Simulated assay, not measured.
Amino acid sequence: MDYVKPAEILDTMIESGTSKANLSVLQMIIRGILGGAILAFATTLAYTAVTQTSIGLAGAIIFPVGFVMIVLLGLELVTGTFALIPLAVLERQTTMSRMLANYGWVILGHLIGCAIYAVFYDLTVTKMGTDMENPLAKMLIQVSEAKTLGYQKMGLSGMILVFIKAILCNWMVTLGVVMAMTSKSTAGKIIAMWLPILTFFAQGFEHAVVNMFVIPAGMMLGAKVSMADWWLWNQIPVLLGNFVGGALFTGILFYLGQKPFRRSASSTIAVKQGQQKT
């Protein structure tokens, strides 16, 4: 059977969280760089679809290609591990310090990867800075300002709003990571993880790694956004909201819902293996 049962998925989540927490620093940074850059590629692809069709949903349908590449290649996406490593900590398979170290090094990798792609993409879309009228360049500027100054104008309400949108976003993103574990086939994994990623992107929720590309790219193109605006009104609250959405609504709640069945599922597997040997 291609389908993997929820109790077995929980075991996979814990094992994956443990494995990711035990990566070397170099592995975390390199995988983070690649993960950030690939997601940035997917973001500009989605924006291209929107500008060409004037249909927002077109971008959402295409955007998951980046997430699929990251998951299938075993790269790092910190927003995805927000649902995995906390479970490994709960099961005492790793430590809180290892979890925080993973997040820190992977975020550093994401920032590097997103910055590299942002520089190359900005030079490409503006024809080496000679054409600032490209619709995609204008879109990046508008999005960069909307994701920072738009919330700033709302004051405290804006800060709460961006935090809530970040929670909703990563509830779906981490669900995409878990959905990939529901199938043993590549095609099944792709279809399963595509659904929640499309869901979050289509509704304009806030994703920390996407913003690590979009906001700096817009700033490089002339968006009136300062470094303080970026981090205070988006990056920090979005990272926190993404953590809550992933760790609580996907990780811990799924853990509590499936934990009573873990031992029985493991026992069933052991019995089947024993029967096969005899």
Rank of each mutant, 00 (worst) to 15 (best):
R92L: 12
S266N: 13
M13E: 07
I197D: 07
N22L: 08
N242W: 06
P237H: 01
T95G: 06
K165S: 11
G36D: 08
G274T: 10
G66C: 03
L34S: 08
D229T: 04
F163C: 08
Q142G: 15
T51L: 03
P135H: 02
M132D: 09
L253N: 14
G66K: 02
Y151T: 09
V65M: 00
T250F: 02
K20V: 04
V162P: 10
L34K: 04
I29Y: 06
N242Q: 07
V78M: 01
T124S: 09
Y151Q: 10
K147I: 01
K147P: 00
A46L: 00
W231K: 00
I141W: 03
K272Y: 04
V125K: 06
F63Y: 01
L10D: 12
M181C: 14
A115Q: 11
A46E: 00
L108N: 01
M172N: 11
L39C: 02
S16Q: 13
L10N: 11
S267A: 12
V271E: 12
I70M: 12
T44H: 09
L84P: 05
M99R: 02
M220G: 06
L75V: 05
I107W: 08
Q258V: 08
L77C: 03
F82E: 03
L253F: 15
F213Y: 11
T81W: 03
W171E: 13
L10P: 14
I167W: 09
L108Y: 01
G241E: 00
I236C: 00
L239A: 10
L39V: 04
P237D: 04
T44E: 08
A115Y: 11
T186H: 00
M128V: 11
T94L: 13
G150E: 07
L57F: 14
Y103F: 13
L161E: 13
A101V: 02
M28L: 04
Y151E: 09
L161A: 14
Q52R: 10
V65D: 00
A202S: 06
S19A: 15
L45T: 04
G274F: 12
M99A: 07
Y255V: 08
M13I: 05
I61F: 06
K259F: 13
G155R: 10
L239H: 06
K153A: 15
W233T: 05
N102I: 09
R92H: 13
I85H: 12
S157Y: 05
T43Y: 01
A37M: 10
L26I: 11
T130Y: 01
I252M: 14
M69F: 14
A217W: 02
